Amino acid sequence: MDDANAPGATPEPVTARSLGLLNIIFGALFLLGNGYEAGVVLALPFYGRLMDWGQSMARQQQDERRRALMDRFDQQIEEAESDEGRERVEAERTVAEMNDVGDLPMMEFPMDFLDRPDVRNGVLAKLGVMGSLNVLLIASGFGLTWLRGWGRGLGRAVALLMIPAVLAFLTMELIAAPSLAGGWTDGMSEMILGPGASPSPAFAEAIDLYRQGATRVFAFSIATTGSLALLYPILVLVVASRPGVGLAVRRPTPAP
């Protein structure tokens, strides 16, 4: 039996329209959030490689300028007509070498831990599934604001699909949290020590504690955001199932 037939139920058009407006707002926000998450995860490895390329080009140009400057000093020394002139040029060269500290290099943070097939595929799958559900949630919002029965039905269906989808992606992300935290920690270690450097026992112990803390932070952040994401579809399911909302979107039966 349709819950709109509950005894004593009265139409609640304000509730239906309010839920529709919230579906539009939250659906758009969730859609933007999904796009932002996917964009960050997919773009950071490329950005890291781009930064590495930019710094290598800058170092190459700096080396070329240094060689050109030294070649000019060598030429001036060869062309000097007296010992005093050569000594003056050599002194200038020594000062230039002492002052040539170059630009301070940017600390390179490797993003390779995000450039993995499982991470990319998981993010793309989440973007596809949750993005589609959020588009449908927005559509249901318009239906509810227009007091259409299909808007209520679509909203309830989307909420029922969102709950297991959020739980599934939440579980996947919690499983991946230790690996992601480990990759983040390895990147920090490489940034501090340099590629291929062997850490001291004290540093290794400290970085291991950091890895444990990062794992807890990653897991807590994932669990918190996932739990919050579960609240709205539950709210939609509860409110859309109210008999008054069902009566508000029911079209009157034409008289025979």
Score class of each variant (00 low, 15 high):
residue 16 A to W: 09
residue 144 L to C: 05
residue 28 A to H: 10
residue 175 I to L: 08
residue 185 T to P: 00
residue 14 V to S: 14
residue 241 S to R: 01
residue 105 P to Y: 00
residue 136 L to D: 05
residue 166 V to Q: 02
residue 10 T to V: 15
residue 226 G to L: 01
residue 50 L to E: 11
residue 27 G to D: 15
residue 221 S to K: 11
residue 198 S to V: 14
residue 246 G to K: 08
residue 30 F to P: 10
residue 140 S to C: 11
residue 40 V to S: 06
residue 142 F to C: 02
residue 221 S to P: 04
residue 41 V to E: 02
residue 208 D to A: 03
residue 132 S to E: 03
residue 80 A to I: 11
residue 255 A to W: 13
residue 13 P to R: 13
residue 23 N to F: 12
residue 250 R to F: 09
residue 50 L to A: 12
residue 120 R to W: 14
residue 104 L to N: 03
residue 226 G to R: 00
residue 221 S to H: 09
residue 43 A to H: 05
residue 213 G to F: 02
residue 235 L to M: 01
residue 235 L to C: 00
residue 134 N to L: 05
residue 11 P to H: 10
residue 26 F to D: 10
residue 105 P to S: 00
residue 144 L to A: 05
residue 231 L to M: 04
residue 3 D to R: 12
residue 139 A to T: 07
residue 116 R to T: 12
residue 12 E to H: 12
residue 204 A to V: 05
residue 12 E to D: 13
residue 198 S to I: 12
residue 70 M to Q: 12
residue 173 E to I: 01
residue 26 F to N: 14
residue 172 M to H: 03
residue 221 S to Y: 11
residue 20 G to T: 10
residue 62 Q to A: 13
residue 254 P to Q: 11
residue 38 A to V: 06
residue 63 D to S: 07
residue 178 P to Q: 02
residue 32 L to F: 14
residue 127 L to H: 02
residue 150 W to I: 09
residue 234 I to F: 00
residue 108 E to L: 06
residue 147 L to W: 00
residue 108 E to Y: 06
residue 121 N to D: 11
residue 13 P to N: 13
residue 240 A to Y: 06
residue 251 R to F: 06
residue 49 R to F: 11
residue 173 E to Y: 00
residue 56 S to W: 10
residue 139 A to Q: 08
residue 208 D to F: 01
residue 78 E to Y: 09
residue 145 T to I: 11
residue 183 G to L: 00
residue 151 G to W: 02
residue 15 T to M: 15
residue 119 V to N: 09
residue 222 I to C: 15
residue 1 M to C: 10
residue 244 G to W: 00
residue 168 A to G: 02
residue 20 G to S: 12
residue 207 I to Y: 04
residue 72 R to V: 03
residue 84 E to L: 10
residue 102 G to I: 02
residue 209 L to W: 03
residue 52 D to K: 09
residue 13 P to D: 12
residue 253 T to D: 13
residue 119 V to M: 13
residue 158 V to W: 04
residue 48 G to P: 07
residue 15 T to P: 11
residue 216 R to E: 12
residue 185 T to Q: 08
residue 129 V to D: 01
residue 12 E to V: 09
residue 35 G to Y: 07
